[in-house]
């Protein structure tokens, strides 16, 4: 037992160290928290492993001629990847035509124009929109956007179409884009704005010539993360774009189509297990791995842009 100051009258380093029991408890707690943090690494490893195994089986066993056919019909052994890839791209383009202007516009308004009180009411509304489940937007896209907007603009359009799905995905993505873009604009130092006003610039000039160029990395990041979210969105497309069994190659956004995500959902839904001819089960994991890699690439590059803004200010 280390001598206590009261016992021997000498104060040593030992007596200031504290009880060993406390140290043991402390290091045990530290290990528990470390294990919690390390779980995230484990999850990433599990995602990659579980996807890569079956995807590898698909890549090695698939007949390569079936990867370039007229459409995506996995149950019939037609794995035309370009059909669902192009479907994803089309939906994403439509979605970003909606989420880009709406999200960026909302961000610039909230950051530069809105009075604090108006901002306090509008920001929570955007956050509520961000919390709406994607099945709900899928229903909305099918029952309202498709008949009331898409079919009015183009009467030839079918009820299930990629356009309505894209608009739905865009609405879902808007709050995310707005939130990241607004963060970037608000991190621009006030001194830059004041310098601009000092030169006699108007608000519009200050916003477009000073604040937006200063925050451009963050705005690009917001756009990229929006794209990543739009590519990964499943339910809106699964509900509103139709083509549940499979899809022919299609470039017309007013026709039904299928994206990578919706293709995965429709393979798993409907039957009790993922069954079908030959490699249907494995193709599910192949598409999943493809999706994982695309979104990972987008997110990593967006992270670079975000860091660039942070480093500068």
């Amino acid at each position: 037992m280390a001598p206590r100051p009261g016992e021997s009258g000498v104060l040593s380093v030992e007596s200031l160290k504290g009880a060993p029991g406390r140290f043991r408890k402390e290091s045990a707690i530290r290990r528990v928290f470390f294990a919690a943090a390390a779980t995230s690494i484990l999850i990433s490893a599990l995602i990659v492993l579980s996807l890569a195994g079956e995807a590898w089986t698909f890549v090695t066993q698939v007949d390569y001629s079936s990867l370039w056919t007229d459409g995506w019909f996995p149950r019939r052994g037609m794995y035309d990847v370009k059909t669902i890839f192009v479907g994803s791209i089309l939906v994403t383009i439509v979605a970003m035509f909606v989420a880009g202007p709406l999200g960026m516009g909302a961000a610039v308004y909230l950051s530069e124009y809105a009075k604090p009180r108006l901002r306090r009411t509008l920001k929570p509304i955007l956050e509520i929109l961000a919390g709406i489940p994607s099945v709900v937007l899928g229903f909305f896209a099918l029952t309202w956007i498709s008949p009331e907007i898409v079919q009015r603009l183009n009467p030839e359009s079918s009820l299930f179409n990629l356009m309505a799905a894209g608009i739905g995905v865009g609405i879902l993505t808007t709050p995310l884009v707005a939130s990241i873009a607004e963060d970037a604009m608000r991190s621009v130092p006030q001194a830059l704005r004041e310098a601009s006003y000092g030169m006699g610039a108007r608000k519009v000039t200050t916003s477009t010539k000073v604040v937006i160029p200063a925050a451009v990395s963050g705005l690009v990041a917001a756009f990229i993360i929006g794209i990543s979210r739009a590519i990964g969105e499943t339910m809106v497309v699964a509900i509103a774009a139709g083509a549940t069994g499979g899809s022919l190659f299609n470039l017309n956004v007013f026709e039904p189509g299928q994206t990578m995500t919706a293709a995965m959902a429709s393979m798993a839904a409907g039957t009790d297990a993922v069954k079908g001819a030959g490699l249907t089960f494995q193709s599910l994991f192949f598409v999943g791995l493809l999706l994982f890699l695309i979104t990972l690439l987008l997110n990593v590059s967006a992270g670079r842009f975000v860091r660039r803004v942070r480093q500068r200010y």
Binding site: R229, T234, T295, G303
Partner: peptide, 12 residues
Amino acid sequence: NLAGVPSVVYGL
């Protein structure tokens, strides 16, 4: 990066 993985991949 995990926060950006599509939900359907988590399903897988």
